[in-house]
C-alpha cells in the first residue's frame, strides 16, 4: 500500500452555511468527515452498502448517501445536514411534520429521511402518496412502518405550499 502525500487531502466545504476546512485521509468517507471532523453527529450511518439511507445529506442541493462518497469528493461543496434544517424562524416544516405526525420512533433514520423528504418536496411540492413512497424508497425505517412518515411528508407539503401561497399573496 502506498503512503504518498496524496493519502491526505484538505477538504473545504460550506456546511449549513458555515465554511469549514479540515485535513483528512483521502479514504475518509463523507459520513465520517461530517461526524468526526465537522462534529455533526446528527447524520448517522446504518449500513455499508448504500441501501438504508440513514446517512443521507444534501450535497449541492441533492440528497446523497454520505457513506458511499469520499469526503475528498465533496471538496468545494455546499452541505446541508439535519442540523441545518432549523432556522431562526423555527423548525423546518419537515421537522414539524415528523413531530406532529409521529413520523419517527427511535430517531435513527430520521435525519436522512428528512433530508430525502425535503429534496422530494423541492422537486415535487405536491406529491401523491405513491410519489412519496417512491421518492423515499432508498430510505429504510424499521420502527414506523412508513405510515406516519408519509403523513409527515404530506403535512410538510401542505404547510410549505400554504406558506408559498402566503408569500405570493
Amino acid at each position: 500500500m502506498s503512503h504518498d502525500h496524496h493519502n491526505m487531502v484538505s477538504v473545504s466545504v460550506t456546511v449549513n452555511g458555515e465554511s469549514r476546512t479540515e485535513e483528512c485521509e483521502a479514504r475518509m468517507l463523507l459520513v465520517h468527515f461530517i461526524r468526526e471532523k465537522l462534529g455533526l453527529t446528527g447524520t448517522h450511518w446504518g449500513c455499508d452498502t448504500s441501501n438504508c439511507g440513514v446517512c443521507v445529506v444534501s450535497v449541492d442541493g441533492q440528497p446523497v448517501k454520505s457513506c458511499t462518497m469520499l469526503a475528498a469528493m465533496a471538496d468545494g461543496a455546499e452541505l446541508t445536514t439535519v442540523e441545518g434544517l432549523e432556522t431562526a424562524d423555527g423548525l423546518h416544516p419537515i421537522q414539524q411534520g415528523f413531530m406532529e405526525c409521529h413520523g419517527l420512533q427511535c430517531g435513527f433514520c430520521t435525519p436522512g429521511m428528512m433530508i430525502a423528504a425535503k429534496s422530494l418536496l423541492e422537486q415535487n411540492p405536491n406529491p401523491t402518496e405513491h410519489e412519496i413512497r417512491d421518492g423515499l424508497s432508498g430510505q429504510l425505517c424499521r420502527c414506523t412502518g412508513y405510515h406516519n412518515i408519509i403523513k409527515a411528508v404530506q403535512f410538510a407539503a401542505e404547510k410549505m405550499s400554504a406558506s408559498e401561497e402566503g408569500a405570493s399573496a
Partner: peptide, 9 residues
C-alpha cells in the same frame, strides 16, 4: 422528538 428531529439524539 424535540432532540431527534434536530439531529440531537
Amino acid at each position: 422528538d424535540v432532540r431527534f428531529v434536530r439531529g440531537k439524539g
